[in-house]
C-alpha cells in the first residue's frame, strides 16, 4: 500500500524542521521579553545574534518545500502540507524578526531602568507563548479545534495591548520626561501583538491543511 516512502519521510522532515524552528522562536521571544524586563543588553544582543540561525532555518524549510514541489509533484493534502509549511515558516521567521525588534528596543533603552510596571507586557508575552505552543500542537495533531481556539487567545492579546497603550498614554501625560520610554514600550506591545497575529496565521494554515478551507482567525 505505502508507495511513497521517501516522500513521506521528507514530509515528516518538514514537520520536524518547523517544530524545531517554532521552539527556537519561543525561546527568542522569552529571552527578548526577559531582557526587556531586566534591562539586560547582553541578553538582548543574544536574541539579535541568534536571528541568523532562525533565518537559516526558514531558508532550509523553503528549499525543502521547493524541492518537494519540483520533484514529487504533490497534490491534495500533500500539496496543502507543503504550501502551508512554507507559510508557517514565513510566519515563524517574522515572529523571530519581531523578537529581534523587542531586543533592539532593550538595546536602545541602553540600560535605563523601566519607570513603570511591565505587567501588561509580561501577560501578553505569556499568552503569546501559549498561543505558539497551541499553534504548533494544532499543527502536529491536525487539531482544527485547537487552531480555532487561537482566535480567542488573540482577542485576549489585543485587549491587553489596548490596555497597555492606554496606560502608557496616561503615564506620559503625568510624566512627560518618560515619553520616549513609553513609546518604546508601546512599540514592544505592538511587536507582541503582531506575533499573536502570526500565531493565528499558523492556526489558519493548520485549518487549510486539514480541510482545504480558508479561515480568518484574526
Amino acid at each position: 500500500m505505502q508507495q511513497r516512502q521517501s516522500f513521506d519521510i521528507a514530509l515528516k522532515e518538514l514537520k520536524l524542521k518547523l517544530l524545531r524552528m517554532g521552539g527556537d522562536i519561543q525561546d527568542a521571544i522569552r529571552i527578548a521579553v526577559s531582557a526587556l524586563e531586566k534591562s539586560d543588553i547582553s541578553l538582548a544582543q543574544e536574541v539579535v545574534e541568534n536571528d541568523i540561525a532562525i533565518n537559516r532555518q526558514d531558508h532550509e524549510v523553503e528549499d525543502l518545500c521547493i524541492r518537494l514541489i519540483a520533484t514529487q509533484q504533490p497534490v491534495a493534502t500533500d500539496l496543502r502540507k507543503i504550501i502551508s509549511g512554507m507559510r508557517l515558516s514565513m510566519d515563524l521567521e517574522r515572529m523571530g524578526d519581531l523578537a529581534v525588534d523587542i531586543a533592539k528596543s532593550t538595546i536602545r533603552l541602553n540600560g535605563q531602568p523601566i519607570s513603570r510596571s511591565l505587567d501588561d507586557i509580561r501577560e501578553m508575552a505569556q499568552t503569546i507563548d501559549q498561543m505558539i505552543s497551541e499553534a504548533l500542537n494544532a499543527y502536529v495533531n491536525n487539531d482544527v479545534e485547537a487552531a480555532r481556539h487561537l482566535a480567542s487567545l488573540d482577542d485576549d492579546v489585543d485587549h491587553r495591548y489596548r490596555k497597555l497603550v492606554e496606560g502608557l498614554f496616561a503615564h506620559s501625560a503625568s510624566s512627560p520626561s518618560d515619553t520616549s520610554q513609553a513609546m518604546t514600550l508601546a512599540f514592544c506591545g505592538r511587536y507582541l501583538e503582531r506575533i499573536g497575529d502570526h500565531a493565528t496565521n499558523i492556526g489558519e494554515s493548520v485549518i487549510y491543511i486539514i480541510s482545504g478551507e480558508r479561515s480568518d482567525l484574526n
Partner: peptide
C-alpha cells in the same frame, strides 16, 4: 479533485499512496 478531493480513495490514488 487535485487540491481537496472528497473521497479518501481519490486522495490516496492521486497522492500516489496506491
Amino acid at each position: 479533485i487535485f487540491t481537496k478531493p472528497v473521497d479518501s480513495r481519490t486522495e490516496d490514488y492521486i497522492t500516489g499512496r496506491f
